[in-house]
């Protein structure tokens, strides 16, 4: 069954298209990473999928229904971010109790265990939690709700390294026990890439890449070689990223099936894999040379 289907999804916001004819389909119970730079449209997309915002044009369906203001989507999809607000009259304990009433699949035992593990106090107020604690608490709600579509938007904001590790492990263990579609947005791909089955890379409101994680790792190769030999080779080819290293060397990232690689190897140049995080940065860079071009 299709969990998410977007076709030419456009969302206009204050003078620009936050989402611009974005299309993709998500099927099966997978953990998918939603990767992109700040302002690429990750949050906008997730809020539309959660039914909070309406689309300007195009088609968007979650569980084959239009999500905006849809109760069936609302009960089966949860969106967790660090902006979650709760009434100040409720204690943390109250919030968990209320969440349990709203979500049919809620796991009380898991919620309580995580609550104790991260040493929350039942009478604490959500407003007074620190940034990291807030993220941790919201994460508990996201996991325990066991929604068929669970969306985490920058879930690790403010968490320290050990809590982040715990979060990823908790997420994976709960996913193994209860497979469901999990959408994780982050600009820290490197810390969660092992968890992901596939990634959707978006930039300027469009899908740049929708690949399985394994394919992404083999998507590109980096070549390092003497500039005067390598640069002519690259001249007529599709290059993902290119930069000078020192005065004489050039580093370039090209697709794994690019003919440049064979030629480079013949010249004895070193080739190596491009880490997914770097690849995503290269693919969404505004200019080929990145920040260095600004200082030219």
């Amino acid at each position: 069954m299709k969990v998410i289907e977007c076709r030419d999804l456009t969302k206009r916001m204050i003078g620009r298209n936050a989402l611009n004819q974005l299309s993709f389909t998500l099927e099966g119970d997978k953990i998918t990473g939603l990767i992109g730079r700040n302002g690429a449209g990750k949050t906008t997309l997730m809020k539309i999928l959660a039914g909070y915002w309406h689309e300007t044009s195009g088609k968007v369906e979650v569980f084959s229904e239009r999500p905006f203001q849809n109760l069936n989507v609302s009960v089966n999809a949860i969106y967790v971010d660090d902006q979650m607000k709760f009434s100040h009259t409720l204690t943390l304990e109250d919030i968990l109790k209320e969440a349990a009433r709203f979500y049919p699949n809620w796991d009380t035992v898991l919620a309580e265990r995580l609550f104790d593990y991260f040493s929350f106090h039942p009478k604490e107020k959500h407003d007074y939690l620190s940034k990291g604690k807030k993220s941790t608490f919201n994460m508990i709600i996201g996991l325990a709700s066991r929604c068929k579509l669970t969306m985490f938007d920058e879930p690790t904001t403010g968490m320290d390294a050990s809590v982040r590790k715990d979060f990823y492990r908790a997420l994976l263990k709960d996913y193994l026990a209860h497979p469901r579609t999990i959408l994780l947005s982050s600009h820290h791909l490197e810390e969660m890439e092992d968890l992901l089955e596939e990634i959707i890379l978006i930039d300027e409101g469009q899908v740049v890449l929708h690949e399985s994680m394994d394919e992404l790792k083999e998507y590109a190769l980096g070549i390092t070689g003497r500039a005067e030999i390598l640069e002519p080779l690259l001249a007529d080819e599709e290059v993902i990223y290119e930069t000078r290293v020192g005065d004489y060397s050039t580093y370039a990232a090209v697709k794994s099936d690019s003919p440049v690689i064979q030629k480079a190897k013949q010249h004895g140049m070193a080739t190596g894999p491009v880490p997914p995080n770097d690849l995503c940065i290269y693919l969404t860079a505004k200019q080929k040379g990145g920040i260095d071009d600004v200082f030219k």
Binding site: L71, N72, S74, N76, P104, N105, K148, P179, R180
Partner: peptide, 17 residues
Amino acid sequence: MSLNKMDLSAAVKKQLN
């Protein structure tokens, strides 16, 4: 996991609470 259904009256009841 199967999909859950939620109708308006159920949602209003829970929200009222």
